[in-house]
Simulated scan of single mutants.
Amino acid sequence: MTRTSFPAAVLFDLDGTLLDSAPDFVVTANRMLQARGMPEVSLEQLRPAVSKGARAMLAVAFPQMGESERQALVPEFLEIYEALIGQYATLFDGVETMLQALEEAGTTWGIVTNKPEYLARLILPQLGWEQRCAVLIGGDTLAERKPHPLPLEVAAQRIDIAASACVYVGDDERDIIAARAAGMPSVAALWGYRLDTDDPQSWQADCQYEQPQQLWQPAAWPATQPASA
């Protein structure tokens, strides 16, 4: 049956789903490379790895290094990124209109990301989201992170809406795995970051869309259970 209203709550991944943060990360990686007299990495090279996290991006920027060497670079990477966070990033086209449509319908929305919470919280005031975003769970907020369902379960608890009444939107397979394990319908954001080896069809999300604009209408969202927690 076609939905006639938006879900009671929507939880979003951040990087690659709401925020096109790849430009920030390219500048971060290139500052590290410049400091070492090494060739810069391009946006096209780094972009597919963004949703996989700092280690994956460092593997693209420093492919000649061993894993332990790259691991030692993570604090430097995060320090440089923190200093410039949001300067080059932009919302994906259509995201703001989507959020406004949800808000006008009375839908609660929040963010569940694997980005460290302190970094995710720096983004909110830049976008005017401090009051709009009802809950924020970072990758270090809890004992587990996605693909474990705990972050989604706790987010639902904090907004006092049953997980089965929420929808989770993310651009990585771990997002869909976490949602399924939490009993939460999911949307695969195909406009985000993916490696060539990723196959979104195999993730088995309830819905998948190429653009945020496709989520402007209630009928686009997957079916959910009643909102009582």
Rank of each mutant, 00 (worst) to 15 (best):
P39F: 08
T4M: 08
L122M: 10
E104S: 14
W203T: 00
A61T: 05
V27H: 03
V50E: 02
E79R: 14
A35M: 11
G37W: 05
Q211V: 10
Q45C: 09
E144Y: 10
A105S: 15
I177Q: 12
T107C: 13
L122Q: 14
F92G: 05
A219S: 15
P75M: 13
V60M: 04
R194E: 02
D172I: 08
C133H: 00
S21M: 05
L46T: 02
L84N: 07
A83F: 09
T197Q: 12
D198G: 04
A59C: 10
V187Y: 03
D199R: 15
P185R: 06
A205L: 11
L91H: 08
P39G: 10
A49S: 13
L124T: 01
G16A: 11
V187H: 07
L14T: 02
T141Q: 06
P147A: 02
V27P: 02
S186R: 03
E104D: 11
A101G: 09
A83I: 08
A89V: 12
G170Q: 00
P222L: 06
Q131G: 13
A220F: 02
C166K: 04
Q201Y: 13
E144H: 15
A35F: 09
V154Y: 05
L124P: 05
R174S: 02
G53K: 06
P212C: 09
Q204L: 15
I80T: 10
R194F: 02
L215P: 07
R31C: 02
T28W: 00
A72Y: 07
A205T: 04
R158M: 13
E67R: 08
A59M: 09
Y118F: 13
A227G: 12
Q211S: 14
E210W: 10
P200K: 08
A189P: 04
A227E: 14
T197I: 07
T113Q: 01
S5D: 13
R3S: 07
F12W: 06
A179S: 03
L119S: 08
V74W: 03
A165Q: 03
Y118I: 13
L195Q: 11
L102A: 00
R31V: 06
T113M: 01
A162V: 07
G86P: 01
G128A: 09
E96L: 14
W203Y: 05
Q204H: 11
A134R: 03
W129C: 10
M57A: 00
L102C: 04
G106D: 06
Q71E: 15
E103R: 12
A22H: 00
Q208R: 15
A188E: 02
S51G: 13
Q71G: 09
I177C: 06
R132D: 05
P7L: 03
Q64M: 11
A219F: 00
A72C: 05
W191V: 04
L73E: 13
L190D: 01
P200S: 10
C133E: 00
A89S: 15
R3I: 03
V10Q: 03
A22S: 08
I177M: 10
Q64S: 12
E153S: 14
Q87M: 09
A227N: 06
Y209T: 07
G170W: 05
A155S: 10
A162C: 12
D171L: 15
R194A: 06
R132V: 05
